[in-house]
Structure formats: C-alpha cells, structure tokens
C-alpha cells in the first residue's frame, strides 16, 4: 500500500526529531516538547495503522484520544513540577545541582 508510505515516514520523522530533541536538550520544557514530538509520532502511527486496515474496535482511532488526554494530564503535572523546581532552585536546567551545597 504505497500510499501509506507518507504517513509512516511522517511518524518516523516525528519520532526521530523528538528523540533527537530529548537527547540534546537540557532545558526541561524543551525536553517536554521533544517528548510530545515522539508522542505525536506514535499517534500518527496509530492512525495510519487504522487507515491501513481497520482492527476490530477501531483502536487506531480511539487510542489517540486516550493518549492525548493522558498526555495532557501529564503535561499539567510536568509543568507543576517544573514550576516547583524553578522555585526551589531558580533554574529549569535538568542538570542543575540537586542541593545548594553541590552548587559551584
């Protein structure tokens, strides 16, 4: 089914971009963005699968809805934690020292 190559490629590119972002970024928010990219790659994959050949429960279409919801919830928690971290140590760099004593 050659016409599905495009969506699969899109998913791969999204995942690749996301992974690259996750791998190189140290800023918590940017890292979140990378994760979301990977997630969206996964969603594209799901939907494409659905398009390629429907499964019993149309899960390829239903699952993304769940995932998006969960991801949204996660981001809420994530931002709260990032905020707390920023308050506690004034930086959202992931590699900031864990304790004040460790700070240079």
């Amino acid at each position: 089914m050659i016409h599905l190559l495009g969506p699969y490629l899109l998913a791969a590119v999204l995942v690749g971009l996301g992974v690259a972002g996750v791998a190189v970024r140290r800023n918590a928010v940017l890292l979140l963005v990378g994760v979301e990219l990977v997630l969206s790659g996964g969603l594209v994959l799901l939907v494409t699968t659905q398009a390629a050949g429907a499964d019993r429960w149309a899960a390829g279409s239903v699952l993304p809805l769940f995932v998006v919801t969960v991801a949204a919830a996660e981001v809420v928690v994530a931002l709260a934690v990032v905020l707390a971290a920023f308050r506690a140590r004034g930086s959202i760099d992931l590699d900031a020292p864990a304790t004040a004593q460790d700070a240079p």
Binding site: V19, A23, R25, D95
Partner: peptide, 16 residues
Amino acid sequence: GERSSTAVGLVVGGAL
C-alpha cells in the same frame, strides 16, 4: 552526577 538528562539519555539510548 545523578543528572536527569543523563537519565533520559539512558532511557532513549537503552530503548534504541
């Protein structure tokens, strides 16, 4: 170092 970025890097690398 106990760096979070290393942790994430490990996860990604491990998954790959």
